[in-house]
């Protein structure tokens, strides 16, 4: 066999995955060819090193988590899912952001006294109340209100008059 073909088998020979039928052919070539022999030695070293790294960098379950995982599988509980949009920062940042957002919403909804001190505008309801107070403090108020109903079929017209307390005063 030529070197080019033999070199396809070297990574497998180094990891003991080459079929028995080909081992002797490749080994006899290695005895004759120092370049392929050198290449083979590199692969042997590579396989040893990568296997060592993979073995050294192994992780294991914490016993409690493992027991929980098995128990969940037996009881048929679905695993907890992480969010679909990956969060690239530490989780504490997410909690801080949520807390900040909640605080802001609370300020806007509840509006504690210090908000007015820092100059935020009053809300619409407050504006309406202020206008009502101003109106009751001397400005002219509407005394009577009327409501008119007209029949489409007969053209009959009914007019109701109410006073400022919304008591019915007159009907025409």
């Amino acid at each position: 066999m030529r070197c080019k073909k033999i070199r396809h088998f070297l990574p497998l020979l180094a990891g003991s995955e080459l079929p028995e039928s080909k081992v002797s052919t490749v080994e006899s070539h290695l005895d004759r060819c120092p370049l392929c022999q050198e290449e083979y030695e590199k692969y042997v070293l590579l396989v040893q090193e990568t296997r060592k790294w993979l073995a050294e960098d192994r992780m294991d379950w914490k016993e409690r988590e493992w027991q929980e995982a098995v128990q969940n599988a037996v009881t048929g509980e679905l695993p907890r899912r992480t969010s679909l949009v990956p969060w690239p920062f530490p989780k504490t940042w997410a909690f801080a952001l949520m807390a900040g957002a909640m605080l802001l919403i609370t300020i806007l909804v509840v509006r504690p006294p210090f908000v007015e001190k820092i100059g935020l505008k009053p809300r619409y309801l407050d504006v309406a109340k202020m206008e009502a107070v101003e109106a009751s403090e001397g400005k002219e108020q509407q005394e009577v209100i009327s409501m008119t109903m007209v029949s489409k079929e007969t053209g009959l017209k009914i007019v109701w008059f109410f006073n400022k307390n919304f008591d019915l005063e007159e009907r025409k």
Binding site: A69, V74, P79, T82
Partner: peptide, 22 residues
């Protein structure tokens, strides 16, 4: 873990796989 690159996700996958195996 080697496939996803994330320990937390690896645990989720294992949990899911254990459920399927059962």
């Amino acid at each position: 873990y080697r496939i996803t690159g994330n320990r937390e996700e690896a645990e989720e996958i294992c949990q899911d796989a254990l459920l399927k195996i059962f």
